[in-house]
Design a binder for these strands. Structure first.
Length: 795
DNA sequence: GAGCACTGGAGCAAA
DNA sequence: TCCAGTGCTC
């Protein structure tokens, strides 16, 4: 076939083209990071439409986020024109929601079923635990709901779960109780006409398994199924693909086992590794040329990921040789790290080398974003946060949506309970409990109990409140034909919710009112309430991302599938990343490593890996060694810009090699701290300073001007005001305290973790670079303080 | 009995 | 930070 000027085939390399031209039957495209897998997917679709004349209605394309779906639709549109608008391109969850809306009745759900997010699901879990008289401490909703979620992802029904829990090796009473909660939870979900995220998949499978006619309908319809990010599918999703694909098995999947990072929500990496076993006669195409990153970045990525065992060999290469080495920086603490990140961004921007939108800052968990945010605010760097507390997680937004859901689906227990006393109208816990009780006995919903209120022994304020609420919801419901904006308007205005916020008159309340207006604006774009609710329930974090000129902040998980010129991965410390909960399990640790690989491979031109000597997280200061993932990168691949490089190594080990060789002698003179022998000298001036001053990291920075200094100080102050001033480390009478670097004659350098009084003496716990943590008696140990935690002093 | 203010505990990633 | 639980007041 001549491909010379075909816009669909011409831009592809040989490997990509082979995949796009794949014939019938299942195909797996193993696509390394940056190898153009989205391109293959969209060109494959364009090829099916334009060259093979497949109907756009015959295609089902699954992407990982709605944003990715929109982008793919656009790309296909540019290749084949407006037919792209009519294709099913969506996430698994959206596709299932759509199918289930049409057939919910056969499963005993209303077509207007509510979709519960995690918070709603946990709330219901809590109700169930309480109602089953289980100890809410032992059976905390978080853990119990996570267990239920896992079972659902493995397509385990409540009956199945109960049988398993009863079997001899079923895990004892705890699992039996969890199985009970699961069963009751599922009953309540059905009674509430609600599905959680896992239900969308599990009930989708159930629908297609138990109703052959429905399955046949979709099999007839979809001649081709295409799936992106296949390495992150779970059992339910693979089953869905199997059920939706007819005997032809035209299943075309794309993925990279090295980027599988969602095991915690049921994703199973073996789905991609054993694709051939699930779908016979599968063809495999391998894409190894990376078009995104420089050689320096790829080398870094490869040096990390090769530490994972049992991965299929892969040889990612690029013809963009060279490139800037990844930069490593170790901050004094998390604020110093944030300052560095911010100052680098300002420098690059100031030199005209980047637009703000070219850069992204990644972190392992959302809690890490705040410090960085403060610093960006203080320095007028525009940014957007992806994820974290999403717009739709805000209280007032959840309240408003609960009003809407309760109007659309009166059975919805969680939503109704949320708004029944909003704003306060005298309906307290006792009244709710009474309604609950009546509902449970009659196996009906609370809404129906309220409908029959007159026959109940509820009187006084509660009775009045319930009558008022019933009337309110009646009026709201009457607006459903007029669309979600109308329902929200009536519910929020006539309930007095808006009035209550206005009366409050605080800045915070004003903010909430603004959010509600924003929500009303979004709702006005929809005519159908269900459609609107589904939309807002299934938006992903990255869906909200804009391409405005802003630096993007997000978790490493959210970063999957994105790319930036400049990527800064922060918090590269053992215990933070890899997360401490993952460090003891080799399987989980490998997943963390894949997450590191994902982060690194997002960068096109310049990668930064930063970490901090000490970190205040969750109200606790910890001293984490540099991430093992950093240590896995050969030193010669990295440009270490840590202020005290060469002191005793990049980590807690004494420097054994001249790994700063690429920067030559500049390493030391840059830091401006003099030769190594001085490091062990006690700094009298510093000892004399107050703990407060000593704890002040701003002083440690030796490269800043006065102006920036004061801005930093300002930012630091505000952070401190919000967190409560960090407690200065107790100095005992030892000349060193928690957080200080100390030297032991035999054990070498270490960091003091804890100091406890021990009679007349002190017991000191020290983490040593070479031998790990030891607890010593101070008078025998003869520890000598090296310096305070942090780079050298400037005065 | 309902509603408020305060305290204490826990905290990973997300459709 | 957020959340739930608790004690106090009306």
């Amino acid at each position: 076939m001549s491909t010379g000027d075909d816009p669909i085939l011409a831009p592809l390399n040989a490997g990509q083209r082979a995949a796009v031209l794949h014939g019938d039957g299942p195909a797996l495209v193993v696509a390394g990071a940056g190898s153009g897998k989205t391109r293959v997917l969209s060109h494959r679709i364009a090829y099916l439409l334009a060259h093979l004349n497949i109907s756009p209605f015959g295609l089902l394309a699954i992407t990982f986020t709605n944003k990715a779906a929109g982008e793919m639709r656009e790309r296909i549109g540019s290749l084949v024109g407006p037919v792209a608008q009519r294709m099913w391109i969506s996430t698994f969850h959206s596709a299932c929601a759509r199918i289930l809306r049409s057939h919910a009745d056969v499963l005993g759900y209303p077509a207007t079923f509510s979709i519960y997010d995690q918070a709603d699901s946990r709330r219901l879990t809590r109700y169930v635990v309480r109602d089953l008289d289980l100890d809410p401490k032992r059976y905390n909703e978080r853990a119990v709901h996570a267990a239920i979620s896992t079972m659902k992802n493995q397509l385990r029904t409540p009956t199945h779960a109960a049988e398993l829990a009863d079997s001899p090796d079923g895990g004892g009473p705890f699992n039996r109780d969890v199985a009970r909660v699961y069963s009751e939870y599922q009953k309540r979900m059905r009674r509430a006409g609600a599905m959680d995220f896992d239900d969308l998949l599990m009930l989708g499978v159930e629908l297609l398994t138990t109703h052959g006619d429905v399955a046949e309908h979709y099999r007839q319809r979809f001649s081709h199924i295409l799936v992106d990010e296949y390495q992150d599918t779970n059992l339910a999703q693979v089953r869905l693909i199997g059920l939706l694909s007819g005997p032809a098995q035209n299943v075309f999947v794309v993925g990279d086992s090295d980027q599988s990072i969602y095991a915690f929500r049921g994703a199973d990496i073996s789905n991609i590794l054993e694709f051939g076993a699930t779908f016979d006669r599968a063809s495999t195409y391998v894409l190894e040329q990376n078009y995104r990153s420089s050689q320096a970045i790829l080398d870094t990525a490869n040096s990390v990921i090769r530490n994972n065992l049992g991965r299929p060999p892969k040889n990612l290469w690029t013809d963009q040789s060279g490139g800037a080495k990844p930069i490593r920086y170790r901050g004094t603490n998390e604020e110093d790290e944030a300052r560095y990140v911010c100052s680098e961004l300002r420098r690059l921007h100031g030199e005209g080398r980047i637009d703000w939108s070219d850069a992204a800052i990644f972190y392992r968990s959302n809690a890490q974003s705040r410090v960085i945010e403060e610093e960006l605010v203080a320095n007028d760097v525009p940014y957007q946060i992806i994820g974290g507390t999403r717009f739709y997680d805000r209280r007032e937004i959840k309240d408003a949506l609960a009003f809407l859901r309760a109007a659309v689906n009166p059975s919805d227990e969680v939503s109704l309970k949320r708004v029944v006393n909003l704003p306060a109208r005298g309906i307290g816990d006792r009244t709710i409990a009474k309604l609950d009780d009546v509902a449970a006995r009659g196996d009906t919903s609370i809404a129906e109990v309220i409908d029959g209120l007159e026959s109940l022994g509820v009187r006084g304020t509660a009775r009045g409140g319930l009558l008022q609420f019933r009337e309110l919801m009646g009026r709201a419901r009457a607006q459903i034909p007029n669309g979600p904006a109308a329902v929200l308007e009536v519910a929020l205005a006539e309930s007095g919710y808006v009035q209550a916020l206005q009366d409050e008159g605080t800045v915070e309340a004003d903010g909430r009112l603004e959010h509600l207006e924003e929500l009303a604006g979004a709702a006005a774009d929809f005519e159908d309430c269900d459609e609107f609710l589904e939309q807002v329930s299934l938006v992903s974090d990255v869906d909200a991302m804009t391409d405005a000129s802003q630096v993007s902040l997000m978790t490493l998980h959210s970063a999957k599938g994105l790319e930036f010129d400049i990527v800064l991965v922060t918090g590269m410390e053992d215990g933070v990343f890899p997360h401490h909960r993952s460090m003891t399990d080799p399987i989980e640790l490998e997943e963390e490593r894949r997450l590191a690989y994902v982060g690194i491979t997002r960068a096109r031109k310049q990668l930064y890996l930063t970490h901090a000597w000490s970190r205040l997280l969750h109200g606790q200061t910890s001293y984490n060694p540099p991430s093992r993932f950093i240590e896995e990168i050969p030193p010669e691949l990295i440009d270490d810009r840590s202020p005290d490089t060469g002191r005793y190594g990049s980590s807690w080990r004494p420097a054994t090699s001249d790994w700063g060789a690429n920067r030559g002698a500049g390493v030391r003179s840059d830091s401006g701290t003099g030769p190594a022998s001085e490091y062990s000298q006690l700094d009298e001036a510093e000892l004399a300073a107050s703990p407060q001053q000593r704890a002040d990291p701003a002083r440690h920075d030796d490269s800043t001007s006065k102006g920036r200094e004061s801005r930093r100080e300002e930012a630091r102050r505000r952070v401190a005001a919000r967190l409560g001033e960090p407690k200065p480390a107790p100095k005992a009478d030892l000349g060193y305290g928690v957080g200080d670097d100390v030297l032991h004659a035999r054990f070498g350098a270490g960091v003091v973790q804890e100091v406890r009084p021990d009679g007349d003496d002190w017991e000191v716990t020290v983490h040593f670079a070479d031998i790990g943590t030891k607890t010593l008696v101070a008078s025998f140990a003869d520890l000598r303080r090296l310096r305070s935690s942090g780079p050298a002093q400037t005065h």
